[in-house]
Design a protein around this nucleic acid. Structure first.
Lengths: 127, 127
DNA sequence: ATTTTATTGCAACTGATTTGCATTAAGAAA
DNA sequence: TTTCTTAATGCAAATCAGTTGCAATAAAAT
């Protein structure tokens, strides 16, 4: 397995993701835990949690890498299924959308992976 | 208009995009033109060309900003319509896909914008 | 030909992410 | 439980994409 030791820092980060289904950028995480752990540690733990299948990640419109708990744990959907992500242009919150998206078929092309990002206003910010 | 002067450097970049419909990262461009112009100039020209509607841009999976010629010029499709982008995991080539994609409708959410990225093997690399 | 000002080059800076290395601490073994 | 092994951490420095300030340059208007 990619991560073997349940260190204090790993627990802190796992706990945080237990309590939110939002997609968090490394910047937000390092900020939250600035007193508890080093930013390098945050980067490395997130890497390992993704490798271990606890989290998944995507690149947001600003080029920031965001992590969220594994979608299968979130909604019981097929883990392999691609799902889109949403980012609110008002509050900045980013989240997984519980929708399956399908890849187009393009002659002579193979599609292995996809990323879908929607930008708009979330239910909270839509008043 | 956002760009008024047809300088040598602007012509070089426009010429390049005339001859490819691929989506190029700023890094590739600054590399190509390292002897001809400064990287800051590349960044600024691309900014202006996008503002002027000659190019459009998106963020790729690696968080790099990529530019391609405006899609309406490429295929005669509706300029407003969102189209997906493709990146080959073998050769690294990135391109626009001449397909229209539609946004899902999510209760209480407003979707203003979207980005779609497919990763796989292009026709060249599929041999 | 002269003037105006958009454009460029350069150097320094920012912000996210990575790397090397010495230190620390899980957790397996004794 | 103590000892040992090595995964995990902290810290500092480095890297890499992108930005900014400012003086020098060159389109293109006069």
């Amino acid at each position: 397995m990619s991560f073997s030791r349940k260190t204090k820092t790993v627990k802190l980060i796992l706990d945080l993701f237990e309590n939110t289904s939002n997609a968090l950028s490394v910047v937000e995480l390092t900020d939250t835990f600035s007193k508890k752990m080093n930013k390098t540690t945050v980067y490395r733990i997130l890497d390992r949690l993704e490798e271990a299948g606890e989290l998944h990640s995507f690149t947001d419109k600003d080029g920031l890498k965001r992590y969220a708990k594994n979608f299968s744990k979130l909604k019981g959907l097929n883990e392999q299924a691609n799902h889109p992500h949403f980012m609110c242009q008002d509050c900045g919150i980013s989240s997984c959308l519980p929708i399956e998206v399908s890849a187009p078929s393009i002659p002579n092309y193979t599609i292995n992976n996809s990323e879908h990002l929607y930008i708009g206003h979330c239910n909270e910010c839509n008043n």
